[in-house]
């Protein structure tokens, strides 16, 4: 007696397998980048929003947005720049929305907006100066502000910032120069 075995068509099976493999590969690749880009997205958002809860929310949104379009990204090495830009843009939108509602000042007064742990040196420059610094930072043009924040994040050189923003190193330097000079004028 012959045994009948139902086999799916080989072409369909291979297409489905390759699709699943592609998805799994994309997920692995994204997971590798998440460890690096997650904190970066948070810090960029935090520098704009000055609120950890909002910054975490924005970082999550940015990472989810990047994940949804991860398969469309032709050059995976540009993922970091992509996440930074998404996070910065989302944070700016959130910040403007908050400002429009005129809640910013009251929320800023709440203790949760202060940096979590301050060392003695930070305490020395904090409080009044820190508030003035952040106020001056807000008034910078967006491009200069982003360069300033990214260059202040530990572990990133100016070359890496240039690569991250996909702009020439000279542009990074000129924006940084302009931003620091403007900050000094406001804080002097």
């Amino acid at each position: 007696m012959q045994e009948l075995v139902l086999n799916p068509p080989a072409r369909l099976l291979s297409a489905e397998q390759s699709r699943e493999e592609g998805l799994a590969s994309a997920q692995r690749e994204f997971e590798l980048r998440l460890a690096e880009c997650g904190p970066l997205a948070f810090r960029v958002a935090r520098s704009v929003l000055r609120n950890e809860a909002d910054a975490e929310d924005i970082a999550q949104e940015a990472l989810l947005k990047a994940y949804r379009k991860f398969a469309d990204l032709r050059d995976p090495s540009r993922f970091r720049a992509w996440v930074v830009r998404i996070s910065f843009r989302l944070a700016l939108d959130r910040w403007r929305s908050l400002k429009r509602r005129e809640r910013r000042e009251t929320e800023w007064a709440s203790p949760e907006r202060q940096p979590a742990e301050l060392n003695a040196e930070q305490i020395a420059v904090s409080n009044q100066f820190q508030a003035r610094l952040e106020k001056a930072l807000e008034q910078l043009p967006d491009k200069a502000r982003l360069v300033l924040v990214l260059s202040a994040i530990q572990g990133y050189t100016l070359e890496e910032v240039a690569a991250m923003l996909e702009i020439p190193l000279g542009t990074v330097k000129s924006r940084l120069f302009f931003a620091r000079k403007r900050l000094a004028e406001k804080l002097r």
Binding site: G38, P39, F42, R43, R46, S47, R50, E52, A55, E56, P115, A116, E117, L118, E121, Q122, V125, S126, F129, Q130, L133, E134, L137, L148, V149, L150, A152, I153, Q154, R180, L183, A184, L187
Partner: peptide
Amino acid sequence: AIDQGLSSIANSPVP
């Protein structure tokens, strides 16, 4: 002071 302030802003601990 600007550098320290920026550093504290940019390197805030990640939750």
